[in-house]
Structures are given as structure tokens and as C-alpha cells.
Design a binder for these strands. Structure first.
Lengths: 226, 226
DNA sequence: GATACCCCTGACAATTTATGTCAGGGTAGT
DNA sequence: ACTACCCTGACATAAATTGTCAGGGGTATC
């Protein structure tokens, strides 16, 4: 009985991670011996699951699905519900609307009995709006799309000491902190990585040029160092 | 070994046929006894596969089991990604894991070209852990499942003035604020609605009893009044 | 060419599961 | 009442799973 659960768990796990998973970490997580994991892998492969193991690396699952994703369990549904509500509460209008739409699409594919509990779920998210709600121009969405399109933008920024500056940057990524969104970018002026708080932006404008992301790896390394 | 193949076969079979499949036909096809098929069904159900058996009909798989391909636009994808990462950052371990799994399942049903951008999306969520990270017992998940199951719980609570109390409550809902999770409940002792910060809970224990939600409407009204 | 990580395989005894059989009970439609 | 199913419990036997021990071999990094 334990075995079957384990096999499904392994599949799920390999699907979840892009990075290779070592047999040892699986063994530990599942409370079984290393040998058992190796045997499980043979079983999975013999059933046609596209799992590949490489020495010195770990296990990976090939793209394309051997088993279609299972339905969402109660915890996963909770995570989706609260996640979408968090975004709806903390994002700007376009992102909040998108969260609502995504939520609707997901609930549409749920079985009826789960669909009801999805909408009635007693999970809420609440967020205070950072500034006075009336006239705050929110730059989250323009910046977000600029990140997506890899478009250079020119910004007017007010740092935490209220010193204004103007610069052209490559917007690389966004991070949601407790209260603020942080934009990580490559600043052409400083020729280095810089972070900017979205709520301190005075203006955002695309220059029209776009960049290729040679900086991808460096960016990820930079993020890890934060 | 035979067992695992059988379970996968049954899943495949139920997905293939729209019409109900009888346990007997499965037993015959797989060369096992009827009893074994029934036991297999229990196993599948215990793994969260919504296979339904009806007397006089046969077995069928519920609609939401296999997620159909979903199409999300770029903004919706952003919302899902950041939402799941927010939950992963702010929930406790079970909820964070669930967010990761849900994320993987969603990405698995995306068209191929969208899948890459899903994983590479430069959107991150970061959250400071509220207490010292070592020995904080996290009550989010037990409370969350109690809300789901409508189970009475007995809690030891330390209010913001550090006054301890002990009470039996009906956990009604959870709200995620910037830094803390708030539990809204009906308190039997006070005979009124009360709110509790999850991080101030000292202990949580189910009484074993459960309640029906007559309080549903009142709860929603109460929440609106906050 | 060390070194550190990994994957992978075989064998064997102990334990845990799975299985068939027998004997019931339940439900829904006819 | 009948049919055609699903479902459950008990129990002895057969089969699979598991950990342990003892290896072999590949890949990347320094």
C-alpha cells in the first residue's frame, strides 16, 4: 500500500521540480532506504514513465506527461485559493483582475462538489494599500509587462532619502515583500544591479529598445545573494 | 509489482471509457478476483483519485480528475506564479508544499510554449518568518484543516497583553494579513465571534465533535464588518 | 587524476502486503 | 421481488517489498 503512494509521490515530485532530485533526498523524505528508491525508479520506468537518472546529477522527468496531472487535493486547493486572493489583494488592478480570471478558469475544471467549496472557502487575504488610495498611480503593471517583454525603461525614482534620480534600466525581475514590490534591474548608469521600490517610482516610460537576456544567469545569482 | 500496473491500468481504463465500467469486467480483464478490484478502488480513492462506484451501475471517474489543457493569458500566468510563490513564502510547510505541487500541476497542463515562460518568470515572493525560525510550532495547518472539516477545537491562547486563556471554538475562517494569519471563530465561552492570531496560539486540539455551518451567513456579515 | 556525488545492481532473510475465498450487507432501477 | 451492481469483514496462504551488505560505474569539479 505504501508503495503505490510512493510512486505517485515521486512522479509528482519530479514533475514539480525542474532541477534534478537525488534519490537520497527522496529516500529521506519518504522514510525508506536508498535501495528502495532505486527499485521504485525501475518500476516507474518499466511502466513507461519518462524518468531519467544520471550519475552525479539526480533524477529528472522528461517533458510531456506520462500520467496527466492528478486533481488538486484539499491542501493544493487551499493554496490556490489563498494565492489568488493574496494577489487580488496586493496587486494592482490589472494583476488583481487577472487573478480573478485565473481563479475562475481553475474552478471551472473542478468537479462540482469541489467547485462549491472553492468559492465558499473561508480563506481571505487582506492587504492595506500602501498610499492614499485615491490618486496613486500604480506602476506595477507597466513594469511587469516591461519585465516580460525585456523592454528598456526610463524611470524617475525617489530613493528612501527622497533624492530623485533618472535612469535607464533593464527591468529583470519583481519580488513581492510584505508591504512593497521590489524591482530588480540592471542600471545602465551605474553599470550594476540595482533594486527599486515600485511605490517610490515617479514615472516609467519605455525607451522602445529591448534587450536579450544575457544577464539571466547573473540575475539569478544576484537574487540568491540577497 | 502486478499491483502497481493494475492501478495505472484501471486509471487509464476509466479515463478512456465514458461509460461506467463494472468491477467484474475489470477483474476478468486483469485476471484477478472481484475482491481485489474493490480493494484497488479503495487504494485509488485514498490517493485522491475521485473514482466513484455506484451500485447497479459501475465505476466512473469524475470529471475534474484529469485537468484539461488550460489557456491563461500572460497576466493570468503572472498572477498564478506570484500567487503560488506568495503562498510558498508565507504559508507553513504543508501549505507551502501544496503551493509547489499545485504550481507544478498547473504548469503541466499549459501549452508547451507557455510552460517555459512559466518556470522562468522573474517573479519572486519573499517573506520574513515571524518568529525565531528554530522552534516555532506552526498551527496554521491544523487550524486550516479544522476549518475545512468544521471541527471544534480547543485552544490555548495568549492575547496581545500576554494574558493566557483556554477556550473551545468553532474555527470559521482564516485571513492572511501582511504579517500574520488571523483565525476568525465562534467562541463558545464568549458566545460571540472572536479573532485569534495564529502566531499567538499556544496549542490546538480537536475535541472530536464537529459543527454544521448554520453560522455561514453571520460569519460573512461579520467579516464584512471588519 | 583525485575527489565528491551520484546512479545502479545482485543476493538474501525478514517482514509486510496482496490475494482468493467465503459470507455476508447495501442500493437503485425494473 | 428480482437483477445487477457496489461494498465490507475475516482469515490463511502466497507473493511482493524492504533493508542491509557489497559491490560497479559514470560525471563534474578542482
Amino acid at each position: 500500500m505504501m508503495r503505490v503512494q510512493r510512486l505517485f509521490f515521486i512522479l509528482d515530485r519530479l514533475r514539480a521540480r525542474r532541477q534534478p532530485v537525488s534519490a537520497e533526498s527522496l529516500a529521506e523524505e519518504l522514510g525508506v532506504s536508498l535501495r528502495t528508491i532505486y527499485r521504485d525508479m525501475v518500476t516507474l520506468q518499466s511502466m513507461g514513465a519518462p524518468v531519467r537518472g544520471e550519475g552525479g546529477i539526480g533524477y529528472q522527468i522528461e517533458k510531456g506527461y506520462f500520467l496527466p496531472p492528478l486533481h488538486f487535493d484539499a491542501d493544493e486547493l487551499d493554496a490556490i485559493i489563498i494565492g489568488m486572493r493574496l494577489v487580488a489583494a496586493r496587486g494592482d488592478k490589472p494583476l488583481a483582475d487577472a487573478a480573478t480570471r485565473a481563479s475562475a478558469k481553475i474552478s471551472a475544471v473542478l468537479p462540482e462538489d469541489m467547485e462549491d467549496s472553492y468559492y465558499d472557502a473561508p480563506l481571505l487575504a487582506y492587504s492595506v494599500q500602501p498610499k492614499s488610495e485615491e490618486e496613486t498611480i500604480d506602476f506595477l503593471s507597466p513594469v511587469r509587462t516591461a519585465v516580460r517583454d525585456r523592454a528598456f525603461i526610463e524611470i524617475h525614482y525617489l530613493n528612501l532619502k527622497d533624492q530623485p534620480s533618472e535612469r535607464v534600466i533593464r527591468p529583470l525581475g519583481l519580488t513581492a515583500f510584505e508591504k512593497v514590490w521590489l524591482l530588480t534591474a540592471w542600471c545602465e548608469k551605474s553599470d550594476d544591479f540595482r533594486s527599486f521600490r515600485i511605490d517610490r517610482l515617479q514615472s516609467v516610460q519605455r525607451t522602445g529598445e529591448s534587450f536579450r537576456r544575457e544577464a539571466g544567469k547573473e540575475f539569478r545569482d544576484y537574487l540568491k545573494s540577497l
